[in-house]
Structure formats: structure tokens, C-alpha cells
Amino acid sequence: MIELWNALPLVIQILLKIAAIVLPLLLLVAYYTYAERKVIGYIQVRIGPNRVGWRGWLQPIADAVKLMMKEIIIPTKADKVLFLLAPMIAIAPALAAWAVFPFDEGLVLADINAGLLYILALTSLGVYGIIIAGWSSNSKYALLGAMRSAAQIVAYEIAMGFALVGVLVAAGSLNLGDIVNAQSGNILTWFWLPLLPLFGVYVISGVAETNRAPFDVAEGESEIVAGFHVEYSGMAFAIFFLAEYANMILISALTALLFAGGWLSPLPQSWVAGVFLLDDGFHWLLLKTFFFMFLFLWFRATFPRYRYDQIMRLGWKVFIPITIVWILVVALAVIYRLPPWWSA
């Protein structure tokens, strides 16, 4: 097998690796929508989808087939090129960001030095899909949704970026693998504890950045119908849907990586070295990612939608000052080698 793999040209190898990341990701997106309906169903004392397949397990497949069969309607006075380009611009960064994501020690497609910066730059591009969709639809509701989304994402991106500055100060590296290894030890040496305020800001900004409830004013159906994607139908709409869920998975996985030790085991390495399933490994990353993904659903089922001016106030006047203060605290802790995190 190894010889066969090495015999392949480099381009084919890279393409196979990309397929090995993107295909499970898309499957996860499909079943994340199913999980969302089930989880919110149970939280609201309902059963959720249970008609297609055993306990509704084939529901996402049925939804995908339905969306593919539907007609893509282009509004008469829409800007056709941009209208069709917008969903692609929305999903491309959500998938491309995975290129530098390490799944286990050394298991990464592109191990670049500025990995964190690359992810931050790519996630900041996702907003173009929403803005272009809103503008090119030639619809008032869509434009209002795009406006809200643009202002919100710019506001929360600053808080999110500052939270990541805290992480890179703490880890002393922009490489995602190095950031995970800087947290090694046990559950208490992961960055969620010394960076607790930044951790909170990052998770909440992540929810705002992905336009999820309670920050989903960009599509607030009670005020602006469905916001930026009101004119979209069929597969064009489905791509926006995919992009939103892929972004949620990306934010969850990044939270697990940057604040919750990635693939590291929560127990000290001296206890679990070599023990099956308790040792460090990809399954821990998966478990942590699923936990943060569940939080997204839990938030949606629990909190009512924020008022728009309150969202802006929270982003600019609460989160950004918190992150600036905590970056200073972390910098001092690193300089004075605060144990147990920076004693080495």
C-alpha cells in the first residue's frame, strides 16, 4: 500500500488528501442538519424528523435530493453573474480553511507557519458571499439582511481576531500544531483556563460570525423574511446552507484546537501513555468538536434573538475591551512565566 501511495504523482496525492477531508466534512454537514432538528426537537419535547428511514436517518439525503431537483429561480432584475457567484464565494473559504487544519500530530494537508493567520484571513472572506447575495438579489429584504450581516461580522471579527492574538501570545506560534503542543499536559493546562475570558469571547463571536441564533439577525425571519437568501432556491440556496453548517463545524473544531487541547487527552500523559482510546488521538479532537457543535444547537434552542443595537453594543463595547485587557494579562503571565502554563 505504502509503495502504491508513494508511486502516485504529488498532484494526485494532494487531490486524494483533499477528498479525504472534504467528503467526510460534507457528510458531517448533512448529518449536522439532522442532529440539529433532532436535538432541538427533543429540547422542545418533540420527536423531530422520523419518517424517512429508520428514525429519520435518511432525512438529510431526502432533503439533498429535493433541493437538487428544484429549479433555481433568478429574479428578473438580479445581477445574474453575481447572483450565482455568491453561494460559491460563501462556501469556498469554509472549505479552504481546512487545508491547514491538523487532525492529529503531523496529520495535516499543508503545515504552514502562519496557519492561524491563514484561517483568520479565509474566514473573513465568507462575508462576501452574504453581501454579494444580498445586493445582487435586487430585493429590499435581501439588501437589509446583507447590511446587517456586514456590520455584525466586521464587529465580531475584531473581537475574534483579538481572542486569537491572545492564543498566539500564549502559544508563541502561529502554527496550529505548535499551538496544540503548547497546551500539552492535562485538561487544566489547556488554554481554556488561563484564557477563559478569551475562550468565552471566541465561542460567542463564533456564533455571531456564523450568523446563528441568537445572533441570526441577517436572516431574522420575523423582520426581513429570510434576509440575504430570500430570493434563492434549489441548489443555490442549499450551498448557502452547506456553507453555514461548514462554518459552524470549522469554528467548533478551531475552538477545540485552540482552547481545548485538540487531539490531546484530558488526562496526564503519564497515566494514559499507550492505553487504548485514553491516549492522545484524533478521537479526542472529534469528541471536543462535537461538544462545541452541540453548543451551537443548544444556544439556538435556548436563547431568543438579540436586538440589533444590543448585538453591536456587545461586540464593540463589551467584547473588544475584554479581549484587549486579557491580552495584556496573558502577555504579563508569559513574561513572568506563570506556572503551570508557562513555567517551562
Binding site: I112, N113, A114, L117, Y118, L120, A121, S124, L125, V127, Y128, I131, W135, L143, A146, M147, A150, A151, I153, V154, E157, I158, G161
Partner: peptide, 26 residues
């Protein structure tokens, strides 16, 4: 110049041009 390249995207494309677009659309 990877750092400058990524920061150009992060700052100009990700933030400045979004605000630009925001104003121009209105």
C-alpha cells in the same frame, strides 16, 4: 512575503473593503 500577503487579505479584503462595499451599496 507570506505574512504581508495574508495580512493584505485579512485587513484590506476582510475588513476595509467590506465597509467600502457597505457604503457603496447604499
Amino acid at each position: 512575503a507570506e505574512f504581508l500577503g495574508i495580512v493584505l487579505i485579512l485587513v484590506y479584503v476582510g475588513a476595509v473593503m467590506v465597509l467600502f462595499l457597505f457604503v457603496v451599496m447604499m
